[in-house]
Design a binder for these strands. Structure first.
Lengths: 338, 338
DNA sequence: TTGTACGCGTTATCAC
DNA sequence: GTGATAACGCGTACAA
């Protein structure tokens, strides 16, 4: 029951190892007599031979392995994407190794190094803040790469994203249509483009509707201090003067933190305050009011990202492509007029 | 910026590849002049040389890769374990590749094959139902293996578990102490030992306290039909005659499904019904009553499982060990006397 | 310190 | 037409 090598199969079939390789890979058909081919296949099956992928990889200079780096694996968005990407890649004969950068540029760099030393064929990355330099280095080394979720306009890399600006516009329009006039936003203090886009969509839409967007209705949150920052920002928005009548959380994590505060403060949702979140969270399951949220096309992102990377790997000279998928606003009770 | 090999370093330093290997691996210290060693290290750094782990693996017949197979990656329990195991293994120089068996014996077998063909050094597995035969095969092939969460008493394999029987006793005692007399249980229809143990702990404890455990208070759920089965079981338990005053969900997934039903039926928790869950779920975040649940020592399981596997890999002849960690009952409002 | 035979497949080249 | 030989890929570690 020891692991068998191609040599074992060759001996059992009474041929050279070369022939075994040819037959099992269905190459050089016609150049090999069907009789010996059958003998080889039989021997391989009887020995339960499985080619050693390490040896294959060394020879072929390809591991058929993809490195996936997500922003934060504890976030449903990331774990869902990881599941979908793994499955899509498996269908195409690739193995995915997963790393979580935990929104940290250092960790991201370490993961890239780790995966490179393991000779991954390509990367799928949801970039953390301040990782542009690392990504640029990868691109310079011509490592196949596809970005998703987050991306840098300055970077000439393949990317699969949604239109964060437009999604935010939709959210804001939705709240305005529900009669809200003092719409607050909770956003990260970040250099990440896609998050800035969410903020921009909100601001532009308000302006377009001649609605105020005072600083008191814009809450910036430091990612390392979410709970306190969210609480502080909400308390400002809910203070007597110019009290907010709606709040748009630009991420699910912000929404969870925010909703906990709102529950503590006994704020009626959607009665006195409408709420919208970007992305889902399992936590929403039992929130008393079903939550309105922006739903990203996870399956689409996952499959697109994989096929884009594979085509890049197959034709290294192919040019950069970027694809924008549509997000959907799922309107539910939390943002409806009560 | 092309990838450098050991040969490049050797040439640049004007030595043989053997020396480079020795120096970079800190072998044969003293037998190599410090001057050339320094020259080699300098050359390696300048070329940004990273050894090709594929070649290393082929030569050493070790990949320093661990295959982790979890039951269901969408479950918090699994994803947390995956995160912890990956991190623990990384600290010790191992890479973890993750697969989700989705509670399916076929998928589990496919993952084992996939990982074996990738020459993982060992496995960490939360076994799905009906996978005993596959695991036995692995053991026969002397593949290092550690089981966790689920295990088979008949299998002589390393294992890290909790005492499910005792945890269930604790849950039941807790409910009894809270004055509950008609305690229902929702459990999977399964051959998995650890789940049967949970049921056994509940039954024994009831019997010990001379409390009834009629069939109407025991709900069996098929894993492929959770929603309906849970709803049906709960409706029986809540029917007028001999109505349950407490319910013990033997998994977080069952609890989530069950709580949705209970909310629909307008059952007051803990007012008319106390509830306990095994394991947590993000969904519990906003359930109106904080949920009492059995908390498993995830960090402990994760680190133990990794160190157990590594010691097994380092000394293949070492004998089977199994470790039982303690679970804690986190008592909160959902099971307190109202 | 160095040469080189490994590990295990793949594939170009050579032989009958 | 059929098949074998051998040179890779890249580190490692033994013999010299």
């Amino acid at each position: 029951m020891e692991k068998k090598s191609i040599k074992d199969v060759a001996e059992k079939a009474g041929v050279s190892t070369a022939l075994v390789s040819y037959v099992l890979n269905n190459r050089m058909q016609g150049r090999i007599s069907e009789a010996t081919a059958a003998r080889i296949r039989k021997a391989a099956k009887e020995l339960n031979y499985q080619p050693n992928r390490i040896a294959q990889s060394l020879k072929l200079q390809k591991t058929r392995t993809i490195g996936l780096i997500v922003a934060d694996i504890t976030n449903t968005f990331s774990s869902q994407i990881a599941r979908i990407v793994s499955e899509e890649a498996r269908k195409k004969g690739y193995l995915v190794i997963i790393g979580s950068a935990d929104e940290d540029a250092q960790k991201c760099a370490a993961l890239i190094e780790l995966f490179l030393s393991r000779q991954v064929d390509g990367f799928i990355i949801a970039a953390a803040d301040n990782t542009e330099a690392q990504l640029k280095k990868l691109l310079k080394q011509k490592v196949p790469l596809v970005l998703f979720d987050r991306y840098f306009p300055s970077l000439k890399a393949n990317a699969v994203t949604i239109d964060n600006y437009r999604a935010s516009c939709t959210v804001t329009e939705h709240l305005i249509a529900a009669g809200k006039k003092r719409i607050g936003i909770i956003a990260y203090e970040t250099g990440l483009f896609h998050l800035q886009e969410r903020l921009r969509g909100y601001k532009d839409t308000l302006q377009q509707h001649r609605l105020a967007a005072p600083a008191s209705l814009t809450g910036f949150v430091n990612i390392d201090n979410i709970e306190q920052d969210v609480a502080r920002a909400l308390d400002v928005m809910l203070s007597s003067r110019g009290r907010a009548d709606a709040i748009y959380f630009t991420s699910n994590k912000l929404a969870v933190a925010g909703l906990k505060v709102l529950v503590e403060r006994n704020i009626a949702i959607p009665g006195t305050l409408a709420v919208v979140s970007f992305d889902e969270s399992d936590s929403f399951d039992f929130f008393h009011a079903p939550l309105t949220y922006v739903k990203q096309p996870l399956a689409g992102i996952g499959s697109e990202v994989v096929s884009m990377l594979i085509s890049q790997m197959d034709m290294p000279a192919s040019k950069i492509t970027s694809k924008v998928l549509d997000a959907i606003l799922v309107a539910r009770a939390s943002s409806q007029p009560s």
